[in-house]
Every structure is written in structure tokens, then in C-alpha cells.
Design a protein around this nucleic acid. Structure first.
Length: 257
DNA sequence: ATGGTCGCGCTGCGA
């Protein structure tokens, strides 16, 4: 069973690219981020025609996450616990196809030292608290999404130049490390530990052409899910197409069901 | 080059 995470950077602007990719790759579950629309504006018809059920947590203009599945989807949560005043659509959790999944969009953080950066760090702490609670169930689950953190030096195109920058700041990396040390397995890194498996390339400055990317999109597996991990990868192909997202899909294959 | 390019939605913000 293939599970994918993909920051699509507007589901409406990206619909043709997303439909084309889903039709070609047929993942059983797709965790999407940055829909940039409210739930009513989500293209339910086009996605439904492909055979996918869709659970959407939308918001006007910004953020928005979704879970697509070829199996029925049972919603578990549409917000990350821990901050009642947080109204940004960044977390959706559900049970589908015999596995619990979460689609998460961690705040980018804007600039180090800003309120947005502090919000990002708090969000990562809240995600760790949620992961800890989920791990207590001792069940197979997958937390997938745009974590907006490149965990290691090999996950950025220039570790020296980017050290201390947003998405590669020591405070973010420490929180990511703490999250993983709860007992999660990075589906991509577990099978492909070498450097350079980027998932995001800025639209600007020819980053894609120069392969100046970051690995910030992740599939985090519980031990029970990791036991079933058969393959994983980043599909760079859709990043090179006309009208593409600035993120590539990251996928894993679980021997479940 | 404190730049560069997107998407949203109509002015600048967030990424």
C-alpha cells in the first residue's frame, strides 16, 4: 500500500498536475498540504472521479490540509491539540485502510526571532506531544506532511550557508530530533540515508535547475508501521513540469492489508 | 543584488 505526502501549493491551481499524478501512481492514501482554499472550494468531483474519498480541513487563502484514500476515511481530529487559539488549518488525522494517518503542515516560520517562528517552535512541540500520545497506542500510524524542517546536513544543498536560517535552524532541528527520538522512523531516511534527497526547491533563483533543494517533507512511521516498510522515495518528476508545485511527492510502500 | 517566483485576490502577505 503506497502512502504519499505532497505539499501541492494550491489544490485549485494544481488540480491538473495532481489529477495526472494520482491517476498515474495510484497511491492508496495521499496526504496533501497547502490547499489554499476552504472546504467548499475543494475539487471534490475531480478527486472523486479518480476513486478517492477526501477528508478536507480547509481555510481561505492560506494553509489547508487533506487526506485522500481509496478506502473509507474515519475522521479522528481536525486540529492539533495544545493551543486553543490556533485557528490555522494545519492538521488532519483519520483512520483509513487499516492505518491511522495524519496530514500536517508545520508553519514555515517566516524569520528567526519573529512571532511566526515562535509559533513554529510551539507547533513542533505540540506535534511531539501528539506523536507521544499516538505511540502509546502501539498501533501502525503515519504522520506525513510538510514539516518545514530539514533535519540533517545532508538534507540541505549548503549546510554551511543555511546554518541558522529558517527550516535549518538549530532550535528547529533540535525539536525535530526530539520528535523522532520518541520512537518514530523516517521512511525516506531509513532506506535512503545518503545526502541530497530533497523534496522542495524554491521557485526563485533557479533553485530547481541548480538542484538547490531542501528535504522538509517527511513520512514519520510508528514502529508498527515501520515493520511493514518496503520502499520509499521522492518523485522529482512532477517538480519539473509546467505549472508545478515547489514541492515533490514523498512516498512510502507499507505491506499492510 | 537583503535579490529571486509563485498563489491568493486585489494590496501586500506568506512561503
Amino acid at each position: 500500500m503506497k502512502i504519499v505526502t505532497w505539499n501541492v501549493n494550491s489544490i485549485r491551481a494544481r488540480l491538473a498536475r495532481v489529477v495526472e499524478w494520482l491517476a498515474s501512481e495510484r497511491p492508496h492514501v495521499a496526504l496533501l498540504q497547502e490547499l489554499k482554499c476552504v472546504g467548499e472550494a475543494f475539487p471534490h468531483d475531480a478527486i472523486g472521479e479518480l476513486g478517492y474519498n477526501a477528508l478536507v480541513c480547509g481555510q481561505k487563502t492560506y494553509n489547508g490540509v487533506a487526506i485522500l484514500s481509496l478506502s473509507p476515511i474515519d475522521e479522528l481530529a481536525r486540529a492539533l491539540p495544545g493551543e486553543d487559539t490556533d485557528e490555522e488549518a494545519r492538521y488532519l488525522e483519520a483512520f483509513t485502510a487499516g492505518v491511522r494517518v495524519a496530514s500536517v503542515y508545520v508553519p514555515q516560520g517566516q524569520a528567526v526571532g519573529t512571532e511566526r517562528f515562535a509559533y513554529k517552535l510551539r507547533f513542533l512541540d505540540r506535534l511531539a506531544a501528539q506523536a507521544r500520545a499516538m505511540l502509546a497506542s502501539e498501533e501502525a500510524f503515519v504522520i506525513g506532511g510538510d514539516l518545514n524542517v530539514a533535519p540533517n546536513a545532508g538534507d540541505v544543498f549548503d549546510a554551511e550557508a543555511l546554518d541558522g536560517e529558517v527550516c535549518f535552524h538549530p532550535d528547529e532541528r533540535a525539536r525535530f530530533c526530539r520528535l523522532m527520538n520518541l520512537g518514530l522512523i523516517d521512511a525516506l531516511a531509513a532506506l535512503h540515508p545518503e545526502a541530497g534527497h530533497f523534496s522542495y526547491w524554491d521557485y526563485r533563483a533557479g533553485a530547481w535547475t541548480k538542484d538547490q533543494g531542501l528535504r522538509i517533507d517527511h513520512l514519520l512511521l510508528s514502529p508498527q508501521a515501520a515493520d511493514r516498510l518496503g520502499a520509499s522515495g521522492v518523485d522529482r518528476r512532477p517538480r519539473g513540469l509546467e505549472g508545478c508545485s515547489d514541492h515533490a511527492p514523498v512516498w512510502c510502500e507499507l505491506d499492510i492489508g
